[in-house]
Amino acid sequence: MRPHVDQRQARVLALVRERGSVRVAELAVELGISPVTLRRDVEAMAARGEIHRMHGVISRVAEPLPGRGAAPGPGAGGGAGLVVGMVVPTTEYYYADVVRGAREVV
């Protein structure tokens, strides 16, 4: 029996939170669903702000620190947090692993 859309999206969200980021194509194979179905779920979850969507990769949304609201974005004038950025030419090849490793270290 196929899981309901809510169950499927909850599973995707749990895996993204656990791993930090995942490739859409690999996740579709792992979950046994079509890439098109997973992309539709990813679009809906990204629209709700549950995950970040990049080309072929989805990643978790940063959790706010305990006792604080969400961190202000760049240029928001918050000044309380440090922002670390990384520019990579693509999320293909091995760069997704590089970004994931940098995110874990930070």
Rank of each mutant, 00 (worst) to 15 (best):
R103I: 10
E104Y: 11
R103A: 14
R68I: 06
Y93R: 12
Y95A: 10
V98E: 07
A25D: 14
P64M: 05
L31C: 00
V88K: 05
A10S: 08
I51G: 01
G73D: 14
P72V: 07
R60C: 10
L13M: 08
R40N: 13
A44E: 14
R2D: 12
E104G: 04
L65Y: 13
V57C: 01
E63Y: 02
V16K: 00
G79L: 09
I33L: 05
S21F: 13
A10C: 12
G75V: 01
A62I: 10
P89K: 04
Y93G: 04
R8C: 05
R23Q: 14
S59D: 02
P64I: 07
G20P: 09
I33K: 01
E50N: 06
P3D: 02
G85F: 03
P74V: 14
G32K: 11
D6V: 03
V24K: 03
V98W: 11
R11W: 04
M1N: 09
Y95K: 00
R60E: 14
L65R: 14
A71I: 12
A102E: 08
D97H: 04
L82C: 11
D97M: 07
R48L: 13
A80Y: 12
E26I: 03
P64V: 08
A28G: 07
T90N: 09
A25R: 13
I33E: 00
R8S: 05
P3T: 03
G81A: 12
D97K: 12
Y95T: 05
P3H: 02
G75T: 02
V106S: 07
S21P: 06
R17N: 14
R11V: 08
R11I: 10
A46K: 06
V83I: 15
L82T: 13
V12F: 03
Y93F: 10
R53N: 10
G75F: 01
I51P: 01
V83P: 02
A96K: 04
S59Q: 07
R39P: 03
R103G: 08
G69I: 00
G73E: 14
R8L: 15
A102M: 15
G77F: 02
T90R: 09
P3C: 08
I33P: 01
H4K: 11
V42H: 00
V5T: 15
